[in-house]
């Protein structure tokens, strides 16, 4: 909270008041799953879904940069050891090699953490994969604020980085069902894909609220209707939005939730139709900096088409975030369910 994240050769480290022993949240390790009370979880949905898809499609191969266990790709590696390539801690050559394998007719699924794909491997993704429209699927764990390790592992701007890249489809799934259904969809998609990955024990959320829900690449889905506010969300913020909507309903506020798991290309038709109904506050909610993510994509869509409802964004601030426990940080930066409810009530 006090760290400036700014180099000053004459700085004095600000005296923090350390928490008392035994008090205060503990940093969430990379191995921790996103806490989601009240939802059943599915173990390693990406790994198992990729195995199922690979049984049907022998062009699928898996590559990782020393993070198979941390991206659930080890499930695939165990099932298809001859189709799994451990590239070591070398994200740039992993991406280049994935491009090379795609040129030879394969459909590579390449995994690492979102920070390393978006920051380190960006140029290689841009030129070797996106510019050539190759069918490489880049699947990355720890998107947004899903680790307490601090900025080195918090991919708070990955969507902003990748949204500017032509040809690239971007997917931000909410839950285990989204992941399981997205895998065959992105495998079938002709071009390159960047998918944010919830991994480990992943909650199964949406169908608990909306039993008929199905993931469709490129489509936003209305999960519940409401007359006071329309929340347009992606990733786990859809779970937060659904939880917030239930709570808001008890408080007499009627909230609709539009789940938008494909960030690019954006389902502008559905967004314009829902936002254009009028009379509702439109709120975007994303596990990402408010700069350059879902919120600004929706804002741009609305304004360009002359649809101008009252509009607010929920997302991470434009700063390097603290280390600490995830519940603490989600509250601090406004993306917990409670913080979401407070913000929405304040805007109505």
């Amino acid at each position: 909270m006090n760290a400036t994240h700014k180099y000053d050769p004459h700085r004095k480290w600000e005296a923090r008041t350390p928490p008392k022993p035994g008090e205060g949240g503990r940093t969430s390790a990379m191995i921790a799953s996103l806490a989601a009370e009240g939802y059943e979880t599915v173990s390693a949905p990406f790994g198992h879904a990729l195995v199922e898809e690979a049984k049907k499609n022998d062009r699928i191969v898996g590559l990782t940069a020393d993070l198979s266990k941390y991206t659930d790709l080890h499930i695939f590696a165990q099932a298809f050891p001859e189709r799994f390539y451990q590239m070591g801690m070398a994200e740039q050559v992993m991406i280049s090699a994935a491009a090379g394998m795609a040129r030879e007719g394969f459909i590579p699924f390449a995994t690492t953490y979102a920070v390393f794909a978006s920051r380190r491997a960006y140029d290689f993704i841009a030129m070797a994969i996106a510019e050539e429209y190759l069918p490489v699927k880049i699947v990355c764990a720890l998107p947004g604020l899903t680790t307490g390790y601090g900025p080195s592992h918090q991919a708070t701007e990955d969507l902003a980085i990748f949204r500017g890249l032509p040809n690239l489809t971007i997917v931000d799934p909410c839950d285990a069902i989204d992941v399981v259904e997205a895998v065959p969809a992105i495998a079938a998609h002709e071009g390159p894909v960047y998918m944010r990955l919830p991994r480990g024990k992943v909650p199964s959320v949406i169908r608990q609220h909306c039993p008929d829900y199905k993931f469709e690449l490129g489509k936003a889905k209305l999960l519940r209707d409401g007359k006071d506010v329309l929340v347009i969300a992606s990733g786990f913020m859809t779970m937060r939005a659904l939880d917030a909507a239930v709570e808001l309903e008890a408080q007499g506020i009627s909230a609709a939730v539009l789940h938008c798991p494909t960030i690019k290309p954006l389902d502008t038709e559905t967004i314009l139709a829902e936002a254009g109904k009028g009379g509702r506050l439109v709120v975007t909610a994303e596990n990402h900096t408010k700069v350059g993510g879902l919120g600004e994509a929706v804002a741009s869509t609305l304004l360009t088409h002359g649809v101008t409802p009252a509009f607010r964004m929920i997302g991470l601030p434009d700063q390097f975030l603290d280390a600490g426990a995830l519940p603490t940080l989600h509250d601090r930066y406004g993306i917990s369910t409670a913080a979401m409810i407070t913000q929405i009530r304040g805007w109505l």
């Binding site: 909270m1 006090n2 760290a3 400036t4 994240h5 700014k6 180099y7 480290w13 923090r16 008041t17 350390p18 928490p19 022993p21 008090e23 205060g24 949240g25 503990r26 940093t27 390790a29 920070v115 390393f116 920051r119 380190r120 307490g148 390790y149 601090g150 900025p151 080195s152 592992h153 603290d322 280390a323 600490g324 426990a325 603490t328």
Partner: peptide, 27 residues
């Protein structure tokens, strides 16, 4: 306080947090 909220000793070393930590490593 190691690794606790607002500790000067976060789990991954960062220059802005800790005297004696010259750089932010981890990437």
């Amino acid at each position: 306080t190691y690794g606790m909220d607002d500790s000067r000793l976060p789990m991954s070393g960062m220059a802005a947090y800790t005297p004696g930590m010259e750089i932010t490593g981890g990437s």
